[in-house]
């Protein structure tokens, strides 16, 4: 589905990532871990064309997307649910969904909107509210619902659990499982290491822009090097993995 080989990327002249090889197969949940500032968000940005790529190749469904424009990559079926949700605050809930659907073939807006509402019924209730009035959890649901408007084959989620209550996190993660079961591949960036590895099939851990460890989720959870990744990054909260 998605395949990254020898990727080096960064912002402007600043190189953040180097030597990244990563694979996401159809219907698989792949987790990217790492301390703050390790380069997880940058990795997702590189895939969706939002930062500068200095070396390497990214292919999606067999097509080289390395030099493609972000909107073309999204249109090809790769949705990116960005860090911090990035909801359009001045638009209504429904208008946020419209933005992600404009100019696409495939299912009609109404059909996809109903699918999103079925997944997150609260969005139906609040469809005409300004998005700025949603709670954090509701905004995260909207962000995921919006990412699904493109009928993606792969969804990249950047810390969807950030700032949410435990009950909501469970709900969001259940949705992620359901999406994968429905055949959508997931590339998930998470700080919540334990939960993420329970959910995922395979994991990669980044340290200072390089891959440090990778492996099947269970194996990775038991790998002592994983804790080192977090210690090296100076992050205290996640060592309990």
């Amino acid at each position: 589905m998605l395949s990254i080989a020898g990727l080096a990327a960064g912002y402007g002249r600043k190189q953040i990532l180097s030597g990244i090889d990563l694979e996401v197969r159809a219907g698989e949940i792949v987790v990217v871990l790492g301390a703050n500032g390790a380069g997880k968000t940058t990795l997702l940005n590189a895939v969706s064309g939002m930062c500068r790529i200095n070396a390497g190749r990214i292919t999606f469904k067999g097509t080289d997307i390395t030099a493609m424009r972000p909107d073309r990559i999204a249109a090809a079926g790769l949705s990116h649910c960005p860090e911090g949700r990035q909801i359009f605050q001045r638009l209504t809930v429904e208008e946020n969904l419209v933005v992600a659907h404009v100019g696409r073939g495939g299912k009609s807006f109404e059909t996809l909107r109903e699918e999103a509402f079925a997944l997150f019924p609260i969005l139906r209730e609040r469809r005409n509210s300004a998005a700025s009035r949603l709670s954090g959890g509701q905004q995260q649901m909207l962000a995921i619902g919006r990412a699904l408007m493109a009928e993606p084959d792969l969804v990249m989620l950047d810390e969807p659990s950030l700032g949410l209550a435990p009950k909501l996190i469970t709900q969001i993660f259940q949705i992620v499982l359901d999406l994968a079961a429905a055949g959508i591949s997931i590339l998930l960036v998470e700080q919540n290491v334990r939960l993420a590895l329970e959910l995922g099939d395979y994991g990669y851990a980044l340290e200072s822009g390089r891959l440090r460890v990778e492996g099947g989720a269970q194996k990775l959870a038991a790998d002592p090097r994983l804790a080192e990744v977090y210690l090296a990054g100076g992050d205290k909260g996640a060592v309990h993995a």
């Binding site: 939002m50 949705s79 359009f88 208008e95 933005v99 404009v102 100019g103 696409r104």
Partner: peptide, 19 residues
């Protein structure tokens, strides 16, 4: 709607597939 989205946040609009 798209024009308003672009004026609020061009990067995110592009990320969502807006030309």
């Amino acid at each position: 709607v798209v024009v308003r989205a672009v004026s609020e946040n061009r990067r995110t609009a592009q990320l969502l597939g807006v030309d």
